[in-house]
Nucleic acid binder design. Structure first.
Lengths: 285, 285
DNA sequence: ATTGCGTGTAAACATCCTGTGATCAGGAGG
DNA sequence: CCTCCTGATCACAGGATGTTTACACGCAAT
């Protein structure tokens, strides 16, 4: 499974690091993930020029001359979207709001003809990251795209490709699977992604956070998918590593991953509130 | 470390107000700290207008008419910086690069006079998040600042989420929990949020303020929820840290958080108690 | 001292959250 | 074309949490 997943997967999008990579650990190939950009416009010349420049940057791009549905955009797994509101028509504001609301991780650059301050303010308030006025220099637009994506990317996880063992569990990102010893947990792709995300963060993650990072777009209100997957994960974890508990529920908040030997009737002397070992010297830089 | 770096006095800058929740939709976002913005410019009128608007947004801001050192900017703990390159002078590019390099989490908006495409491209490539050309409408600039910060915020969260110890209490935002030593207070999500809010502010908070920032909407007249939660908090605090009082009532106003060693008045009954008249608060045990 | 209002406290009540199992739709592979 | 598998969605029950109500107490003003 997953061997047939097309080229673009969730992991492909979230793999990147601007910071200096700690020398050792020659991770496989840390190929700069190619940017995925879509342009919704109708000016053939503009799109041609843009297309050339984007291509030169080794950046996957797609041009559309009519608005795509939000679901389509979700499926494209984009990093950035360049949008001419004139193409959308009268519902452009609503469209912009929908897109930005559903894809909080997407850089949205409105690039359209002359506009009023009020229009630009409205666009930015609805969630656009930048507003370029046509005609504009393609190079500048590219820079704005890059600047926007640069910001968005930073929020994504380091995504280490190195195997890590936590508790009894060994996580192998290269195999998209987790093990206890030699025995596989038989996790599905999505289960693995959630486990990996949880294991990488050593803090409570809210459902919305988990959903957004794994699914790639905003969680609908009342969606229980995360709960269900956590249940499946716990089930498989418990089956293979019965004496440990890994995923902890924080009521009203979310989930947190921390391997703990689930001992029988401990509670003897040290209730071992898993308390912070290290107290990060507060506030620096 | 950094104890010698001059910090912006919170009391001077912070004007706690209802936080205008940008982003339109009623996303159940947790209470987030106020924006901190600095403006480096020399146009008195522009700065005045900007200052007013920023103030109206309950946004801490400071205006400078000369370039601050990178260290100073670091110490200010800014979310955003608005910069007129003309103020910096000939080393403006170098300055911009230094600032952006040193503060990757800072939203940098260049707002300066007429420029060439090449200049704008250069600025953006060096790390600026946006480029506004003066003269510009203050409202638009504000929106650009908000749009930039909106994205930076997330990455910044883990940075803000550092543990803090006040009195005997250690607050761990990453675990959504508070501790005394290793022992958990067993706070519920909402209790923790209220405690965190109170602990962050060094002043009296009105009930309406607390309610709005924790619940996310206006408090109904006569609602006693805040009182009830304060009671629960006090109960748990007293249970674990009996000799301290943390939440103080200001009659007719609201509540204030400040750890104070309980002055045991046992002198009357039995002078035996080690009524250590000790540390003037704030210092850890 | 008395009065009125704001606050502390406790319990009952209503609500929301979560775990769980089951069902359904779509896709991959045979 | 069929079957198996994965992922999405639903319904339900139990329990934890949040809200409301009621009453006693203390502070402040008359």
């Amino acid at each position: 499974m997953l061997s047939t997943i097309p080229l673009i997967t969730v992991s492909a999008m979230s793999r990147e690091r601007t910071e200096a990579q700690p020398g050792g650990q020659a991770a496989p190939q840390r190929a700069q993930p190619r940017l995925r950009v879509a342009v919704i416009d109708r000016d053939p010349g503009f799109m041609q020029v843009l297309s050339n420049r984007l291509g030169a940057l080794a950046c996957e791009h797609r041009t559309l001359s009519s608005p795509a549905t939000v679901e389509t955009l979700v499926a494209m797994r984009l990093n950035a979207l360049v949008l001419d509101l004139a193409v959308i028509g009268p519902e452009s504001w609503e469209y912009l709001e929908r897109v930005c609301g559903r894809l909080p991780g997407l850089a949205v650059i409105v690039c359209t003809g002359p506009s009023s301050v009020a229009q630009r303010v409205r666009g930015l308030r609805l969630g656009a990251d930048a507003w370029m006025t046509k005609p504009c220099h393609p190079e500048e637009l590219i820079c704005v795209i890059e600047a926007s994506v640069r910001r968005h990317r930073r929020q994504e996880l380091p995504q280490v490709d190195v195997a890590a063992t936590i508790g009894e569990i060994t996580i192998r990102p290269d195999l998209y699977q987790a093990y206890v010893g030699e025995q596989s947990l038989e996790l599905t792709a999505r289960e693995f992604e959630i486990l990996q995300l949880l294991a990488q963060s050593d803090r409570v993650l809210r459902r919305e956070e988990i959903y957004e990072r794994v699914w790639g777009y905003a969680m609908a209100h009342g969606d229980r998918s995360v709960d269900v997957f956590v249940r499946k994960l716990r089930q498989k974890l418990r089956a293979i590593s019965p004496h440990w508990s890994y995923i902890h529920t924080h009521f009203g908040v979310g989930y947190r991953f921390a391997p703990e030997p689930e001992d029988l009737e401990l509670e003897a002397a040290g209730p071992v509130e898993e308390a912070a070992p290290e107290q990060p010297a507060a506030l620096t830089r």
